[in-house]
């Protein structure tokens, strides 16, 4: 072996294990949480310091201490919980109704290619309108209460679910359908035993997107007209330049979305047990 070759051979053996080792020490559940908590704490610390020392305007940007104070106040007088409940309920109801109706309609379109072809451009047209633009009309129709927020959330979520479900049904492996047909399946059996389960992963993936849209519908509805809810909280607080309260609303919205995301995760595990272990985590890409 020449000198160059022996150096080349020796180098990876020396460098790589050490690099991997350092990562391995931090890449544990505890290590990851420590990193996440640490970086958030650092961010809050810098923010607080910046506000105290006047590097940024506490009036415009708020400060962690102010946010904490405002959160404590609204928690103690019970108003925050009412807002959380209101917005979560609107968002969830809109999410469930819109996603269920949209998914079912999308799957049903598989049944008739004729109907699907007629409806497709209409769906595309409806989808290309920013649904938020409907908000004023929806409030005119459904009033300023729960119904209007749910309707707005439904208008957002149903179209997303419909397109996802229809596309997934269309993409279902034709060979699997051929197999079922050769075995004597009827159209309705092909639908129930091939199309629906084959589309389920895409439909569940759409749950995650629609969760966000459910919240968007609820919050935007509250922005426009409402007496309670987190959207109402954020909107009124910002018009009073009460930035701390705005931040409270935003953080709580984030927490709701975060919590619901884990609920969806659970649902996904229950609905798609076969998707759980796909392997590939050991790929060192």
């Amino acid at each position: 072996m020449t000198r160059v070759e022996s150096q080349l051979a020796a180098r990876p053996a020396k460098v790589q294990p050490r690099k991997r080792h350092r990562r391995a020490r931090l890449d544990t559940p505890l290590g990851r949480v420590a990193l996440q908590v640490g970086s958030i704490a650092l961010l809050l610390g810098v923010w607080e310091a910046a506000a105290r020392f006047g590097w940024i305007s506490a009036f415009l940007f708020g400060s962690p201490a102010g946010i904490y104070e405002s959160a404590r106040r609204s928690l103690l007088d019970g108003s925050l919980l009412v807002d959380v409940w209101t917005t979560s309920f609107e968002a969830l109801l809109g999410f469930v109704i819109g996603t269920a109706a949209g998914s079912l309609a999308g799957l049903a379109l598989w049944y008739s290619r004729f109907v699907a072809r007629v409806v497709e451009p209409l769906i595309v047209a409806f989808n290309s309108v920013p649904k938020i633009a409907f908000a004023p009309v929806i409030i005119l129709w459904f009033g300023t209460g729960l119904l209007a927020k749910v309707a707005l959330a439904v208008s957002l979520t149903s179209i997303v679910a419909l397109i996802a479900a229809y596309q997934a049904a269309k993409d279902a492996d034709p060979d699997l359908q051929r197999l079922a047909l050769a075995l004597g399946a009827t159209k309705s059996q092909v639908f129930r035993k091939i199309i629906v389960p084959a589309s389920l992963p895409a439909i569940v993936a759409c749950f995650r997107i629609n969760l966000g849209f459910g919240l968007v519908g609820a919050v935007v509805g509250e922005f426009i007209s409402s007496q309670r809810g987190l959207g109402h909280l954020v909107f009124t607080a910002s018009s009073l330049y009460d930035i701390s309260t705005v931040w409270v609303g935003l953080f709580v919205l984030m927490a709701i979305g975060f919590a619901l995301y884990f609920v969806i995760d659970r649902i996904e595990r229950a609905l798609l047990p076969w998707k759980l272990d796909r392997g590939g985590h050991d790929l060192n890409v």
Binding site: D175, L176, K193, P197, W274
Partner: peptide, 13 residues
Amino acid sequence: YMMQKDLLLPWRT
């Protein structure tokens, strides 16, 4: 009916 692809339904055991 059997093809080159096994055509097993991935969502079924």
